[in-house]
Design a protein around this nucleic acid. Structure first.
Lengths: 221, 221
DNA sequence: TCACTTTCCAAACGATCGTTCGAATGCCCG
DNA sequence: CGGGCATTCGAACGATCGTTTGGAAAGTGA
């Protein structure tokens, strides 16, 4: 028996008494999904990796899709909390009217920091990116319809840019989200191949600055 | 028997003698893949839709993955040709040194026009977007390594922005590609949900102008 | 201790998938 | 007409998948 091999980064056990199996499944599933993709990981792979019985996934989560959805729900909620906290701090710092750059930073910095190789959230971030494009109908429905976490950002941007029609703010926010969501391994690999490697030695802070410069200019032009 | 492997590497289907079955499979597969996703379409779905025998896919293409790769190869080559033509026209118009905006337009306009509901290439564009994120290892390898079609754009941008370090040009090109690749149905749906629908009545030309404004500002800031 | 619930387990089920095979069919050319 | 291919066809193979099942084991409370 090997209940867990890694300190189970987090994924809070919440109110459950004995959730060792559940936590092991969650951790193993997230890691395998992030590395190989949702469809290329079977329930057998997950349970073998977690050292639990094959039926555990269906017993604890109902189905494989429900497991994916559960991880996705937890991680996106966590990411949204990080972003909301940064936005709130920016709002507090600037008496309710933060500048565009700080609003965009609250949107960009959490996912970028999560993606950092030294960050324990790296796997979680990679999973979110995978699930966004490979997820089930339920996941895609959440992405399509749940925009509540973006509302405060849209409102803050409209407050910071009162002269700009709301329609423009929404479109530019859409473009910015496109920039953020493009930070996948394959895309970075392509960028490095295109630039003959000169883009490779760029750390998170430098990337964040570049993204902020680019998006801020797009908003303020 | 396996009589052929790849008889016409780069020739359009019109040059082959009897390619009715092959063409029917290609068309049906592209349409189904674009609508439902690569993994959610079986070889049986494709052959049933095309009105051909189940074994046709393996006989004419070798495997399902090879079929996906073939469609992807054809369509991306076509898209790259469209982009290269626009870039070449811009270069001709400006004596070898086109402005940033026209370079970006050559990159953005073809995929945006293809995505237009009135365009016959709409399905093809949707397929490309699907294959980019759901494709096999071969497809992903092509995306990661084949950057030849982007080189002329990077060079044109460096010529137009001689004061900017090449590293910056590459990064900003990466951001711009992220904006372009983000134009999926689900992302638009989310944008419209966030904006309460006020972004919905935006045609291709208006979207192109907005994207160009945003990216141009990001490059010129 | 005992009854009861929760969790775990090995095994199998049913379905779907990509692929292969051998025979039948169509087709071109001598 | 008839041999030589290329193609099509129905049928099946082998593998993998998510899920289910019935009973064993562990935990719980009195």
């Amino acid at each position: 028996m090997r209940p867990l091999q890694d300190p189970a980064p987090d994924l809070p056990p919440e109110t459950e008494r004995d959730a060792a199996t559940k936590a092991a499944v969650l951790a193993a599933a997230e890691r395998l999904f992030a590395m190989r993709g949702l469809r290329c990981v079977s329930v057998r792979d997950i349970t073998a990796e977690a050292g639990v019985n094959l039926a555990s996934v269906n017993y604890h989560f109902g189905s494989k899709d429900a497991l994916v959805f559960e991880i996705f729900r937890r991680r996106t909620a966590e990411l949204s909390r990080d972003r909301a906290r940064m936005l709130h701090e920016a709002i507090s710092r600037h008496d309710g009217k933060p500048p565009v750059r700080e609003i965009l930073a609250a949107l960009m910095e959490p996912p970028l920091r999560w993606s950092n190789p030294a960050n324990v959230r790296r796997i979680a971030m990679q999973f979110i990116i995978r699930a966004r494009s490979e997820g089930s109908d339920a996941v895609r429905e959440i992405i399509r319809t749940d925009v509540s976490h973006l509302r405060p950002f849209a409102e803050a941007l409209m407050t910071a840019l009162p002269h700009l029609p709301p329609e423009e703010v929404y479109w530019r926010l859409h473009f910015t989200l496109g920039m953020i969501h493009n930070n996948r391994f394959a895309e970075f690999d392509r960028l490095h191949a295109l630039s003959d490697g000169i883009t490779r030695d760029s750390d998170v802070d430098a990337l964040l600055k570049r993204m902020l410069d680019f998006a801020e200019a797009g908003f303020l032009h």
